[in-house]
């Protein structure tokens, strides 16, 4: 499992719905039938997961491109 997806500032986010800080949690991300497990910031109340712009436009985008065979 990849544990390098959380920056210290990601855990400063507060869930607007639950009013609590996000916490590191093991999350399964699925794309085109492939599952990837990672530790990501998640709200302990409602389960909302924060995906940073860096992660979304970085390796997540690379993974999507590979899986789409582009």
């Amino acid at each position: 499992m990849n544990k390098d997806n959380i920056r210290p500032q990601d855990l400063e986010w507060i869930c607007a719905k639950c009013g609590v800080n996000l916490e590191p949690a093991q999350v399964t991300v699925e794309y085109l039938g492939n599952e990837f497990v990672a530790e990501l910031p998640r709200c302990p109340g409602c389960g909302l997961v924060l995906i940073s712009e860096e992660l979304a436009s970085g390796k997540m985008a690379e993974v999507e491109q590979i899986l789409e065979d582009k």
Binding site: N2, D4, N34, F36, A38, G58, K59, E62, V63, L67
Partner: peptide, 9 residues
């Protein structure tokens, strides 16, 4: 994809 996921890029 898994190699990229685990190793960043």
């Amino acid at each position: 994809a898994r190699l990229i996921w685990e190793h960043g890029s």
